[in-house]
Design a protein around this nucleic acid. Structure first.
Lengths: 231, 231
DNA sequence: AAGTGGTCTAGACCACATG
DNA sequence: ATGTGGTCTAGACCACTTG
């Protein structure tokens, strides 16, 4: 008997556990609010408040008149939000997908053993000109079959992770810093070596909190532009 | 008669208007939820939902057992959140406070006439070494008396705005970009002219939405570090 | 028409802060 | 002890989506 915990928070935790255990597949609807209220033996209002918690945590999504759905993978070309580009259509080109052994840094970031097999994906994203150079690291054990995927016309990676490997990205943390382009970055982005670069390090998480992907994205620092509102 | 608007949203708008009109001073408590419910002739639950809206908008703050309070000025040395610094104690030094005539750019940003009187404040913020160089623009009409303030030991500006000029900052938007230090910035920050700089442009708003302050902050780009979580 | 989430009500009790 | 916000209930009706 947990004390000091409200009924709705308790119900929220239980329901969250069921979602993480995969009781309902991402994209599918969970039972209706009134059904859930009966199952958990709480009033409708309490059940709704529990669902509010899951909605705020991005676990689940409400659609009026239809139902409450387990959220699928992250969408949106969200890397673009850091840069000055406007309404142009982005394209992606995968340069290489290779299997390497995790060095200590990657091992720690991906939470795998040192020397464990890791997939390294390199790609370039372009608007009119190339603007982002990306290197992506994945645990090869989780992403079996990814090496044989046809990457043509694959603008977004997360739907591919889900479709071919059943891995759903639910949350990501982007950490932005400043540095300089190495020869490879500069070549990819048609810049001079040593040009000013923004470096975005992304760690993407599954619904249960496991690290799924570590990504390093570099772009021209002079194109960087990002707004935050504080209250 | 607005249609398609929920009762709680309507009440929230009305209450928000009263707060903005200054019916209750920042930092003071508004009437209790049950009193407000009676005044607006709605159920307690509806009133609470209206208050939820104001809380989410940062207009008002709930404190259990005490009451609901109109939020005061923004707090926290929030510029630090863009940098790698840890738990050191920051200090500020105001270099100059001068009255100038608004050029077109400042006029537009502050929403005053071109050539209108504007206060320009320059300051340096230091941890162990200088790390931020700031230039701040204020509408001189709103900030009468600020030129005679004793700036010693004045780490935070927003409480000063409130205390001496009755101006309360409720919200701010920071826009980050990269560029290079000019001679003045470089001198302030003990860097070389042309060194890579982070530039944070802040626009700060009053509760009623008026622009109160435009601020340009420059720092060493290599110290930049910022994290965002996406769901 | 039936089912879903969204709004609203009226009342009860709890947890917290204060005098 | 009193008053505040926080939780919970049980029920009604509305707005939206779908067959």
């Amino acid at each position: 008997m947990r004390q000091g915990i409200s009924r709705y928070a308790e119900v929220a935790d239980l329901l969250k556990g069921e979602v993480h255990r995969g009781v309902w597949a991402p994209g599918t609807a969970i039972p209706s609010e009134s059904d859930l209220a009966k199952t958990f033996s709480v009033a409708l209002g309490t059940m709704r408040k529990a669902l509010d918690v899951l909605v705020e945590q991005g676990i689940v999504e409400r659609i009026q008149g239809k139902g409450t759905y387990v959220r699928g993978p992250l969408v949106g070309s969200s890397m673009l939000r850091f840069f000055r580009f406007e309404g142009k259509s982005p394209t992606s080109k995968v340069l290489s997908v290779v299997r390497i052994a995790a060095d200590p840094a990657i091992s720690k970031a991906l939470n795998v053993e040192v020397s464990a097999p890791v997939l390294e994906i390199k790609r370039i994203r372009s608007l009119e000109a190339p603007y982002l150079s990306e290197t992506i690291y994945l645990d090869a054990i989780r992403f079996i079959g990814l090496e044989t995927v046809d990457w043509t016309d694959s603008e977004l990676l997360y739907p591919i992770y889900q479709q071919f490997c059943g891995q759903v990205v639910n949350r990501a943390v982007d950490t932005v810093s400043f540095g300089w382009m190495n020869a490879e970055d500069a070549n990819n982005l048609l810049q001079q070596e040593g040009a000013a670069a923004v470096i975005v390090r992304r760690v993407a998480y599954a619904m249960n909190g496991d690290v799924l992907e570590v990504r390093l994205t570099k772009g021209n620092a002079l194109e960087f532009n990002y707004s935050v509102t504080i209250n």
